[in-house]
Design a protein around this nucleic acid. Structure first.
Length: 955
RNA sequence: GCCCGGGUGGCGGAAUUGGCAGACGCGGGGGGCUUAAACCCCCCUUCCCGCAAGGGAGUGUGGGUUCGAACCCCACCCCGGGCACCA
């Protein structure tokens, strides 16, 4: 079976089986029919308040709900059963919310620029647009087959010029903005120029704005832009032939795509000034309903550290260090500079020159890979120079070492070896002094296995390691600052910072690990930059009227790649080769002139930075989104909801990259007045993964998981022993299960139910094809409890409705409603199965229970629910009907059975009125023979009664 | 090393957040239906002792708080994820 519309056979599969049993074949027939019906009736089209999709009547009186999946890359290999886990979750939730009165926006797009399509094009010579279109079409078909209730009018594809026209427009917005650090917002660049011109903002060198040449003015402006070109250390990956972002480099210094070595090289590249937003990206995490772990990962990545800059005077001028511990300045006994530090040459004395130059050369030749090996033995060289510690005037030696990184802080540190492990190790290695500035407690000395030292007897020569904890300061005093005896680090820092500022030796400051975002790639399959350069090399953004700037056709898609280890190679973009395209004649307002285009393309992340906004207003050709529509779906809500997508579901692998970049763009657009919410994704939910067993043979190569047999707990493939491990289902582990197999055997509703029943949505769980049958049997029983399997019509022999069934029904409604709302689909399903098991024992589903059972099933198994709903005599879709509501009166029983514990052990159960008071329950419990036996004739010392719940007797 | 999660039957997982541990599903055992099998229906299924009634143990380990702990506290052991020479 495939999903091209071929009709499944409805012939009975076994000779004597009923013609209308709910088999895989019948399920498919039902599903394909309803999928067509939904399309024909535009069932899932969601109204907007304004614009072409407007239907104000349809949304009147409803609350909005924006449910979003992280959109997929349309890969050529299609979906396996692991992919749609999150999509099924959002679909069930969306369907449930529609039945509880929400106007739900739910769609799906495709993140279709990127490497695989380009690499495939390089291999086959087929244009990536062609393969991408095929893959997108295939994926749409696959998603439709699962029964996902997407509004397909709103679907987007990032490679569609109608979409990337606005990606380019947003880029020009960012390019034409600067960050006002006083007001802490992005503002149009024209306002900056106006401030310079009016003299309300001083120019960098203090001259009047009008006195600057055009080139000088452009230079000042460029230095403020949020998107700017910079000659800066970037990650050059010769094996890929492109530069990549910091976030795309793995911990061992390789590209996350392709696993090639990455080298730090100075190159002219586009950057985005995301660092300007570092504080807001941290602070606004507090607005978000995200898990603590994702918030922690974002904070970690941004890496905010409060500390101080301190200036050390040397013969070569002031050396500025960054430290988070200015309070330990009295213990700074040497300095260490990164080998790349600009003052190294000036500091190096003749006698040390040879050694220093050799060390610097060696450090440069080391790739990041080599520099980050886990061997943390310290290396370094003395420059021959000294600098003055401002706090005590001591002349301390200046060294260089590669454990100090040029990319963080100022690229120079003050070393406080007594309190810092790295500095301690370095001092030991090179015999540098280690003055003590804190009095460690006796316990610490004991733990170190050395004699306790006090006061003037403190002698670090005996210490096996640095003392890194909190303890009172000693030897920390000069003429105007005294920290001795203090045991509050915060207070000591405060006093030292004040002293530094008062004496001009430094100031409190904040640094971040976050670097500006490297935004250009030397590739073909991405958004071209809407930027041209004039003869003077000045960059101009293309005006709106020239957008989209479409990717030019070519049959040469490949960037030039190099030997992966050739650090000194240089990038060549495929667009460079298109001479006509790259050198257009344009009129940018001062007559037709020849320009040359920027031949880079944007990174794949660009398209995913704003796609959710385009779902709102997908066909707008005047704006990227209509403000009225944006306000409705994304604006702050009256109930304290600060705005943004109401539920965003996706994998945890995007914890830093996509989520950080998208937040950044959103904030810029918010600052510029284009958006009404501070954050794009209010509630983030990370779904787990579907894991599957994978098997490796003795050569450590994965074997086809479906060829493996188990014998006595051992696994064999083709007679050879193999070892089992668990991994994310996928092609590379050779353990992917195609959804089509499951449809064929059971239908999509069973697949949906199985994936939702396996466990909580945020947990990863192993796929077991063997277990799928459980959900199939459940749906079969639901069907059989209502439908005559011989005729396919509603049964005429349904049992009578009774009070007990009524109570079970209402308890189920109550529980399922709560579970669905909290996205606990696994326990919702369990409750529906319990209800159905009760009905099975009755001999069928009483007509009085049928409607509500079917409606509760509708979000989970929508095709079956529609079919049964029709059979029950209705003509409308279940999609917008009210989800059943429990009658509170039927949720409480007249009597309850409660356990009676004696000394904490359950010894008996008693039946009491549900509203029995404590005294009654106590008396009933004490009268129980089993309880009396357990007490062994002793009088109870104490009786605890939880009304309606339990009794505990202490004997 | 640091920061997040998490450890419950043969397996996936429940447990209204301190109140009957093991819902629901898979698997397993038994029975019914059937000439027979499949399907379907019913019963049992945490472990140990016991024919049974019943008893004992039990939520990674050890301790603690509490009338009562899978849940809270302390210490530790494993597993998964993230970060890691970031001054």
């Amino acid at each position: 079976m495939n999903a091209t519309g071929e009709q499944p056979s409805s012939e009975p599969q076994q000779n004597d089986q009923q013609a209308f049993r709910y088999t895989g074949a019948l399920a498919q027939q039902i599903e394909l029919r309803w999928q067509d019906w939904w399309d024909e009736h535009h069932t899932f089209e969601t109204p907007n308040p304004a614009g072409p999709l407007a239907d104000p009547e349809a949304l009147a009186g409803k609350q909005k709900l924006f449910v979003l999946d992280m959109f997929p890359y349309p890969s050529g290999s299609g979906l396996h059963v692991g992919h749609p886990l999150g999509y099924i979750g959002t679909d069930v939730y969306s369907r449930f919310k529609r039945m509880t009165g929400y106007n739900v926006l739910y769609s799906m797009g495709f993140d279709a620029f990127g490497l695989p399509a380009e690499q495939y094009a390089v291999q086959t010579g087929q244009h990536p647009a062609v393969t991408t279109a095929q893959n997108v079409a295939n994926m749409r078909r696959q998603l439709r087959r699962i029964g996902l209730s997407h509004d397909r009018r709103r679907s987007i594809d990032t490679t569609d010029p109608g979409y990337y026209r606005w990606t380019q427009w947003i880029f020009t917005q960012i390019f034409n903005s600067w960050y006002d650090t006083d007001r802490k917002v992005a503002r149009p660049i024209a306002e900056l120029v106006a401030e310079f011109d009016a003299g309300t903002r001083p120019t960098p060198d203090g001259r009047a704005w009008a006195a600057l040449s055009a080139a000088e003015q452009a230079d000042v402006v460029d230095n403020h832009r949020l998107a700017y070109i910079s000659e800066a250390p970037v990650n050059w990956c010769p094996g890929l032939g492109t530069v990549v972002a910091n976030e795309e480099v793995t911990a061992d210094g390789r590209s996350d795509r392709g696993n090639f070595p990455v080298f730090k090289r100075n190159m002219r590249q586009w950057m985005m000034r995301i660092t300007a937003y570092a504080d807001r990206l941290i602070d606004d995490l507090d607005l978000l309903d995200w898990t603590d772990s994702i918030k922690a990962m974002q904070r970690n990545w941004i890496g905010r550290s409060e500390g101080a800059r301190v200036h050390f005077e040397s013969a070569a001028g002031a050396i500025t260090v960054f430290t988070t511990r200015p309070d330990t300045l009295f213990g700074a006994s040497f300095m260490v500079l990164a080998p790349e530090h600009p003052l190294v040459a000036a500091l190096t004395t003749d006698s040390q020159r040879e050694a220093v130059e050799a060390y610097v050369r060696a450090a440069q030749a080391k790739s990041d890979v080599a520099r980050q090996v886990d061997d943390k033995t310290k290396t370094g060289v003395f420059t021959g120079s000294y600098a003055a510690n401002p706090i005590n005037g001591a002349q301390i030696p200046v060294w260089i070492a590669d454990y100090v990184l040029m990319g963080y802080g100022t690229g120079a540190i003050m070393a406080v070896p007594c309190g810092d492990e790295r500095d301690f190790e370095f001092a030991r290695q090179f015999g540098l002094p280690i003055p003590a500035i804190q009095q460690p407690p006796a316990a610490w000395f004991e733990q170190q296995g050395i004699a306790v030292q006090q006061g003037d007897a403190l002698d670090t020569a005996a210490w096996p390691e640095a003392f890194t904890s909190d303890a009172p300061y000693v030897h920390s005093t000069n003429a105007s600052l005294d920290l001795n005896g203090l045991d509050s680090i915060a207070e000591a820092k405060r006093r030292t910072n004040a002293w530094l500022a008062a004496n001009g030796h430094g100031e409190a400051t904040i640094t971040y690990k976050l670097r500006d975002w490297l935004f250009s790639r030397q590739r073909y399959w991405g958004e071209p930059f809407p930027i041209v350069y004039d003869d003077e090399g000045m960059a101009h953004a293309l005006p709106d009227s020239m957008l989209p700037l479409e990717l030019p056709p070519t049959d040469s898609f490949s960037p030039r790649t190099f030997d992966p280890d050739d650090a000194m190679s240089n990038p060549e973009s495929p667009l460079d080769r298109l001479a006509d395209w790259a050198h257009p004649v344009l009129d940018l307002g001062d007559g037709p002139k020849r320009y040359h285009r920027d031949t880079n393309v944007m990174p794949q992340w660009a398209g995913s930075c704003w796609y959710e906004l385009r779902y709102l207003d997908p066909t707008n050709t005047d704006r990227f989104v209509d403000p009225a529509v944006e306000q409705y779906w994304m604006g702050p809500q009256g109930d304290g909801h600060p705005g943004g997508v109401d539920l965003y579901v996706g994998g945890v692998e995007h914890a830093v990259l996509h989520l950080l970049y998208a937040r950044f763009w959103h904030k810029v657009l918010f600052d510029l007045g284009h958006l009404s919410s501070k954050e794009p994704y209010h509630r983030l939910f990370n779904q787990g993964y579907i894991l599957a067993a994978a098997f490796k043979d003795e050569r450590e190569i994965y074997v086809d998981a479906f060829s493996v047999e188990e014998r006595d707990g051992q696994y064999f493939s083709g007679g050879q022993p193999v070892t089992r491990e668990w991994g994310k289902m996928g092609k590379s582990l050779k353990n992917a299960v195609a959804p089509d197999e499951i449809y064929e055997a059971y239908g999509a509703d069973t697949l949906r139910l199985y994936e939702m029943a396996m466990g909580p949505l945020d947990a990863s769980r192993p796929w077991e094809t063997r277990d799928v049958v459980g959900m199939y049997r459940f749906l079969q029983r639901v069907w059989r409890n209502l439908v005559d399997e011989d005729t396919g019509a509603l049964r005429t022999d349904l049992p009578a409705f009774d009070d007990a069934t009524d109570r079970v029904l209402h308890r189920t409604i109550d529980g399922v409603r709560a579970d669905m709302d909290a996205m606990r689909f696994n326990t919702a399903i369990a409750k529906l199965i319990e209800l159905n098991n009760h009905l099975t024992k009755l001999g069928g589903c009483p007509r009085e229970a049928a409607d509500r059972l079917v409606l509760m099933l509708a979000p989970l198994a929508p095709h079956l629910a529609e079919e049964l709903w029709r059979m029950l005599g209705n003509t409308d879709t279940v999609t917008y009907l009210d989800f059943p509501i429990a009658d509170p009166a039927l949720l409480v029983d007249d009597t309850v059975e409660v356990p009676v514990q004696v000394n904490g052990k359950v010894r008996s159960r008693i039946i009491v009125a549900a509203d029995a008071d404590q005294a009654t329950m106590e008396a009933t419990a004490l009268a129980d023979p089993k309880v009396q036996a357990a007490l062994g004739g002793n009088a109870p010392k104490k009786v605890i009664v939880v009304p309606g719940r339990m009794v505990n007797i202490v004997g």
